[in-house]
Design a protein around this nucleic acid. Structure first.
Lengths: 228, 228
DNA sequence: GTTTGATGTTTGTTACAACAAACATCGTCG
DNA sequence: CGACGATGTTTGTTGTAACAAACATCAAAC
């Protein structure tokens, strides 16, 4: 049981998979980009076999879209697809918030409170990068309290599908519209064991963000990154 | 645009993937079975590369569980996991039924009515195999009416996860407990545009089936196929 | 008789090469 | 000058082989 025994190399495809996921969530891939196996393999410094595994997984998860000739492309998100994503997210995350209110515990609540204050200071400092990271962890901190791993896993999948456009939010939106702070309200409801309130606030948070993103669509319905 | 041009061979991994999915849904794999690449490759008559792709996808979908040494095993379902599956399915399928009631159309409703009568005659004839098949198509006929492909796709994933135990239901359950026919009630609610009623009946259908399956658990909480 | 160590088997991982389909490029013919 | 066709390039697919980790088996030593 020595520490030496624990040095087990992670498979290469796992590394590629997580790196691709992180890149997607961080919005480092522009929608519409075609990912070729050989170019990815070169950038990872491996053969195409591990990256093929990773891409295969992402496609199976619905995170990457498979185009003609089974090529993998970073999906464009249309206004309609965003609507669909919003419906599913509301059903899933609303339910998770509801369960969280029923299964709350002291330690988790304290962590959420801390993260919330961190988020507010990051907003004030206009540090969008870090804010998005903490924002994600705040949401999933709530969902983890539901005690239903399957629910968390499914929600993660939905966030991955939103990945390419998550970074489309600009600081002004976060700063201005958050006068109606659904995050604080949701946490307060959960602390009070108010399942209805928790669901309502999370759903409102998702809906408002979706409404903002919907305004970024061009004439064809495709969501575009705002200038600046 | 001749028909000859349409003869494009499907990739081998796609064949393996769909065949494995069908086998799972039909309950041809006993929970706990370890699937080795080489044995699957031999049974498919291909090299291990295509079946590796297929298995990789199934694992990424959460349909197959990955055990030690990244081997793929047909997942056991515990009573707790069934509960979690039920929560997610109710949230998703309840929402889909609600949307279906809002987007109903004449042609789809007629197909559903036909399928319902087919199901009833299959019950009377004790043809469980065919019944399960039609039962699945009836449910997904409703979900497709929601007009939200993402929702349907996610629900399909949940059914795949239930796959290994779906065939655990025995004819007696289908025949006896269905005095409370939630299928008929759900369809009636959808035809009337009653979203609340549609969701209520679908949720009741899922919950009752889960309650029955829950009774099949052994001392360790694992679901077991009933004798006979 | 029990334990420990070596060895063989099983099985997933990775690289490489041959292949096929689709697309782009460019030259030739009308 | 334009259209058609040959050719090269790109890219995903599949098979094969070498490799490594884990497990099972068996024999020898205490």
């Amino acid at each position: 049981m020595t520490a030496l025994k624990r040095i087990e190399r992670e498979p290469l495809w796992d590394l590629a998979h997580t790196q691709l996921q992180d890149a997607l969530l961080a919005g480092r891939f522009e929608p519409g980009t075609v990912l070729t196996l050989r170019s990815l393999a070169e950038s990872f410094g491996t053969s195409i076999t591990p990256v093929r595994d990773a891409v295969t997984r992402l496609v199976a998860q619905g995170v990457l879209q498979q185009g003609a000739r089974n090529s993998a492309i970073v999906p464009h998100l249309s206004r309609r697809e965003l609507e669909h994503l919003t419906v599913v997210r509301c059903a899933l995350e609303g339910r998770a918030a509801r369960e969280a209110a029923s299964h709350r515990d002291e330690a988790s609540l304290r962590r959420l409170r801390d993260r919330l204050t961190t988020m507010q200071s990051l907003i004030a400092a206009r540090k969008l990068e870090s804010y998005l990271e903490h924002h994600r962890k705040f949401h999933f901190g709530i969902y983890a309290m539901s005690g239903i791993p399957l629910l968390v896993e499914t929600i993660e999948n939905m966030w991955l599908r939103c990945g390419p456009v998550l970074s489309f939010v600009i600081p002004e939106y976060v700063v201005l519209l958050k006068g109606t702070d659904h995050h604080t309200a949701a946490l307060k409801a959960i602390m009070a064991g108010d399942a209805d309130g928790a669901e309502r606030e999370i759903v409102a948070d998702i809906t408002e963000a979706a409404h903002y993103l919907s305004g970024l669509a061009d004439a064809t319905g495709q969501l575009r990154r705002p200038p600046g």
